[in-house]
């Protein structure tokens, strides 16, 4: 009776699994070949462009990259410091603004109005303008050291500008928590503020983590805006080297350093977003 035995592979795969494997193998081969082809074309054709030698020596000069990289890296630490100062301040200020805009108590109406005006005005101005106005304007008042530091006022400008956007993220999060949640909390006797603190806000913030991550990435990059008002952070350091060496390679070095930080963060943000989407569908 062996003639009617179904053929079984050593791994005991089902028909469907074997089919899927075959498909997967085929698409892997196809994508490998196409990547190789594109790479080959780039490697062969780009150097044939008339200006390639000039571009290569002024943007991709290995010696200059090696020489400037350590200093660029230490200048990037300044960026990170400014980032780690601004991020928590933005978190706190924007949460305060979102809560102010959410309040319904008449005594707090001025606060509510302030919140609305704040978000409207500061979202309507490019962040770079804020950096200029605050970063040049306030030290111009002739404050004593160290209160005239462009590091401080540049950070303040970033915090003020970003808080306006992030406050809106929090507000949308608060509004997305269904009113039945606060009804349940209120019916248990929780006060309005305890309901916000223990029931609504935790859910609102959790829901907005992916959106907040995008602001984290944007802020990481926008710290470089402070280069325009003085702090020797990475972009300014690259600028100095560019003038010194009459070569653009330091900019490429700066870009590489940024990417080393932003790509992992972006991947992580996407992962969080995908996970949240899955949670919602299941």
């Amino acid at each position: 009776m062996t003639a009617f035995q179904p053929t079984i592979t050593p791994l005991q795969l089902t028909r469907r699994q074997r089919h899927d494997r075959r498909l997967k193998r085929r698409s892997l081969v196809v994508s490998c070949i196409s990547v190789l082809l594109v790479a080959l074309i780039l490697v062969l054709l780009v150097p044939k462009a008339p200006g390639w030698e000039a571009v290569k020596s002024s943007f991709f000069n290995w010696d200059i990259l090696v020489k400037t990289f350590p200093k660029l890296l230490s200048a990037f630490v300044v960026d990170l410091k400014i980032f780690f100062w601004s991020a928590p301040l933005i978190f706190i200020l924007s949460l305060a603004i979102a809560l102010a805009r959410n309040t319904r108590r008449p005594a707090l109406f001025p606060l509510r109005l302030f919140g609305a005006v704040y978000t409207d005005v500061l979202r309507g101005v490019p962040v770079i303008l804020l950096v200029y106005l605050i970063g040049f304007g306030i030290p111009g008042l002739g404050l004593p050291r160290p209160y005239n530091s462009p590091y401080i006022w540049g950070t303040v400008a970033l915090v003020l500008g970003y808080s306006a956007y992030v406050a809106e993220v929090f507000r949308a999060g608060i509004e997305s928590v269904h009113s039945s949640q606060s009804a349940a909390a209120r019916s248990l006797g929780l006060s309005e503020s305890d309901t916000m603190r223990y029931v609504v806000l935790p859910q609102a913030i959790r829901r907005q983590v992916p959106a907040l991550m995008n602001f984290v990435i944007a802020l990481l990059k926008d710290v470089a805006l402070l280069s325009f008002i003085g702090p020797i952070e990475i972009l300014r350091q690259a600028n100095v080297y560019k003038s010194l060496m009459a070569n653009f390679t330091p900019y490429v070095g700066a870009a590489i350093i940024f990417l080393c930080v932003t790509i992992p963060v972006t991947r992580y943000a996407d992962y969080l977003l995908a996970r949240q989407r899955n949670e919602r569908t299941t």
Partner: peptide, 28 residues
């Protein structure tokens, strides 16, 4: 002093069962 139970439960999804139950006794 008046308890209300809803058709749609309205449990707090970010809290464990224990924390759902103890939130109001602790805070109120």
């Amino acid at each position: 002093r008046i308890g209300l139970v809803f058709q749609s439960f309205n449990l707090f999804p970010h809290l464990t069962v224990m924390d759902n139950v103890t939130l109001a006794p602790r805070k109120v």
